[in-house]
Design a protein around this nucleic acid. Structure first.
Length: 755
DNA sequence: GTTCTAGAAC
DNA sequence: GTTCTAGAAC
């Protein structure tokens, strides 16, 4: 009997389901073309296209007519495309109801292509069914895009495919074309979920930057695949096989668990690899749980493995009985980590070469936040072994460090660690503290503690990776080579620091050293008093993945903030906390900078809770200047905020009028830096720092290349000149988000403008 | 031919 | 941050 039921069920299944695909997209987004392509190449499934522009005997009809026509087609067992814009939820609702029958799946295909593209297509086309073409099209498309509401599954769709590039569209065409009469596509949301109009990614992201090549053009072109899951962006987890299992087990059996102890010296080829020796962070004096710490070490080692090339990581502890070593060793072997690239070592981290035969060109120090010598443990040992020159070199890089961050210090050649042990860099890293007798104790808050410890290892390994990368650029890429090249005198520290600060720049092939050194000395001539200039700022952003150094041009604000009396002509106001100056290249009628005078506070990511009073002061000072400007011209409107990733060093608040009437506003980056999420409103920053202790920092460099949109009416424009001519006339009210929380500052409305 | 952008150099 | 300019886009 059961079998009968099964058979019946199967029989019903065999009828297959019809699909109603509701297309969503502006004119020019390619809805009709999409339907055409699917209908042309789909042989197996009957499709009907319901187009409102032509439904009434070739002329435009009503929504009701579309629904009726769609229902009839579905009743006949056909699948339908609803070809109209359907940009708003309300417009879609009635079509979603077509899915009332169990035999119909309602899908949405969103053609969320760049406004620029839709506009240029609809302006250019001729013979459009809806007669939307020419100049009028641009206005209409723009208006529609402003009202855009991307569909959500909660509206009742079984499936949503969101296409943001031509290759996404092609994948969707393939998916629907390949749909046989009995097939169904998987349910769910496919493609990038975008925050709608708020953050619309620029075309550059899809057309130029090839960050995610796996899912874009190559997929759809080379592998025509009806499997729609391909549309989903999936990060390729390239898990390269560790490959050296036998090697691993061999070493283990030989050493009885204590990998490599005393056996490294002879292995010359391995000993040439760049190597970072590091102590377990926070597990000694800071009393961090070693079980948790060992998990994090292994996790972070794995994370960095593929970035390291032939470089090695070595966890070092003094004692054979070290619990952290044995825990890490066990976990590392469980995960089959290649023991040539990561291993544990018992010995004194300051005497690895002379005492243990292990050559490590970089060692990490579990530092305290003041970067002071002494205390005890590894920190005392490393500062003592490094000598006074390590202290000096350290202070040149940073005065203090926050838990979770690290700073790379190139070691002067006079340091015994350099001459005796061959160590070229010390990386100071500060981990979380669980010891109530030490500063910044986290009171057993391990969720925060683990986060900070992860950040600490990320910062440490990033710092090391930077060294490895820059050393790899030197002629033969080996450490010996680098050392041989280093001048013997004090110049050494300058030369090798150079390798970091300029690490992002492409070096000239002929002689990178000469090139960089000459640049360096030039920078020093310009700014001799300032030995901090070349500091590689390794203090991490909250995500903890990127390091940044400041070019010589980026020092101007720092110099002004530190010595405003020397820049009297530029400075509008000086107080103990801030300096106010006109932006040298104002991007609007009024554009001033409120610069913090706190040393080491270079950018938003350096800001912590302790800076809250300063942030408030900066905001107040900014408002005071706004008031002054409004007194002169009450028609102005101001915004106060910080750049997420500023080009100039030293934290500065932009106070800028919203006319953007300036010849200095010349390119996309200029515009987007003040009119996307790249600009963080001061009020929001203050709020975030007061509640979370830091500002929210999105890691997203796409914002500066986003398409150009009017900051008032949000209309899109193809280039800067066109945008500028638009904004001189646009008087639309500002978007609601800007009107909230005092993000915009304008003259009080009850004040009349003169007699 | 002219306009505009984006990347390199500073 | 700007300036300069090749070459893409128009």
């Amino acid at each position: 009997m059961d079998m009968d039921i099964d058979e019946k069920a199967k029989g019903e299944e065999k009828q297959g389901k019809s699909v109603a695909v509701i297309l969503v997209g502006a004119p020019g987004s390619g809805k009709s073309t999409f339907c055409e392509h699917v209908m042309r190449s789909s042989s197996a499934r009957p499709w009907v296209r319901v187009c409102q522009d032509t439904i009434k005997n070739g002329k435009a009809g009503t929504k009701a007519q579309c629904i009726e026509s769609a229902m009839n087609a579905l009743k006949d067992g056909k699948s339908v495309f609803i070809d109209r814009c359907n940009m708003e939820k309300e417009q879609r609702d009635e079509f979603v109801k077509l899915g009332g029958s169990a035999q119909v799946d309602v899908h949405a295909v969103v053609l969320d292509l760049p406004a620029k593209l839709c506009i240029s297509r609809s302006v250019k086309r001729t013979g459009h069914e809806g007669n939307l073409q020419g100049g009028r099209a641009a206005v209409v498309v723009n208006r529609m895009l402003q009202k855009k509401e991307l569909p959500k599954l909660s509206e009742g769709f079984a499936r949503i495919t969101c296409c943001q590039s031509e290759s996404d569209v092609q994948s969707a065409v393939d998916a629907y074309s390949g749909l046989g009469p009995l097939d169904t596509l998987p349910s769910g949301y496919f493609g990038q979920k975008n925050a709608g109009a708020k953050v619309q990614l620029g075309i550059m992201r899809f057309l130029k930057k090839t960050d995610g090549p796996a899912n874009s053009e190559s997929t759809s072109k080379s592998v025509p695949d009806s499997n729609a899951s391909r549309i989903i962006e999936e990060k390729e987890t390239s898990s390269k096989g560790t490959g050296s299992l036998s090697e691993n087990s061999r070493k283990e059996s030989k050493e009885g668990g204590e990998l490599f102890v005393g056996s490294v010296g002879g292995d010359v080829s391995l000993n040439d690899s760049p190597t970072l020796a590091f102590p377990s962070i926070s597990t000694a004096d800071f009393q961090f749980d070693i079980e948790k710490a060992s998990d994090i070490i292994v996790e972070k080692v794995i994370e960095f493995f593929n970035k390291l090339g032939n470089a090695r990581l070595v966890l070092v502890d003094l004692s054979h009985k070290s619990k952290i070593l044995s825990l890490v060793r066990a976990k590392a072997s469980e995960k089959n980590i290649n023991s040539n690239k990561f291993f544990t070592f018992v010995g004194d981290i300051t005497r690895l070469h002379s005492g243990g035969g292990l050559h490590c060109n970089v060692i990490a120090n579990a530092a305290n936040w003041r970067l002071k010598p002494g205390g005890g443990g590894v920190n005392a040992a490393i500062f003592s072994a490094g000598g006074p020159s390590l202290e000096v070199a350290t202070k040149e890089q940073a005065q203090s460090l926050y838990p979770g961050s690290a700073v790379v210090v190139p070691l002067p050649s006079i340091s015994p660690l350099f001459s005796r042990e061959g160590v070229t860099h010390v990386i100071h890293v500060v981990g979380p503290n669980m010891n109530p007798h030490r500063p910044n104790c986290l009171n057993n808050d391990y969720s925060k503690g683990c986060k900070v410890l992860r950040e600490a290892y990320t910062s440490l390994f990033e710092g090391f990776a930077t060294i490895v990368r820059t050393q790899a650029k030197s002629p033969k890429g080996s450490i010996e080579n680098l050392q041989a090249k280093l001048p013997k005198s004090q110049e050494h520290s300058d030369a090798s620091r150079n390798h970091f600060t300029n690490s992002d720049q492409k070096t000239k092939r002929e002689d990178p050293h000469k090139y960089e050194r000459s640049k360096r000395s030039k920078a020093y001539q310009d700014d001799t008093e300032d030995s901090n200039t070349g500091k590689p700022n390794l203090s991490n952003k909250s995500g903890g993945s990127r390091t940044k150094s400041w070019g010589s041009w980026a020092q101007a604000l720092y110099n002004t903030a530190m010595h405003p009396e020397k820049h009297k002509d530029a400075v509008l106001e000086i107080s103990d906390d801030v300096v106010v100056l006109n932006d040298l290249y104002p991007k609007a009628k009024r554009h001033v900078l409120v610069v913090a005078r706190c040393a080491g506070l270079d950018r938003l990511s350096d800001v912590h809770k302790e800076h809250l009073p300063l942030l408030r002061t900066m905001h107040e000072v900014g408002l005071k200047w706004v008031e002054k400007f409004l007194h002169d011209d009450s028609s102005l409107v101001f915004r106060l905020g910080y750049h997420l990733d500023p080009s100039m060093r030293q934290l500065h608040l932009h106070v800028i009028s919203q006319d953007f009437d300036s010849t200095y506003l010349k390119n996309k980056k200029h515009w987007n830096s003040f009119n996307t999420a790249f600009f963080r409103d001061s009020v929001d920053v203050v709020e975030e720092v007061s509640s979370d202790g830091k500002a929210k920092l999105k890691e997203d460099d796409s914002m500066l290349s986003m398409e150009l949109r009017c900051h008032r009416c949000r209309s899109a424009h193809p280039n800067i000149p066109r945008l500028k001519s638009h904004i001189t006339n646009c008087r639309a009210t500002f978007p609601s988000t800007l009107l909230q929380n005092g993000r915009l500052v304008h003259a009080p409305s009850n004040v009349s403008i003169g007699p």
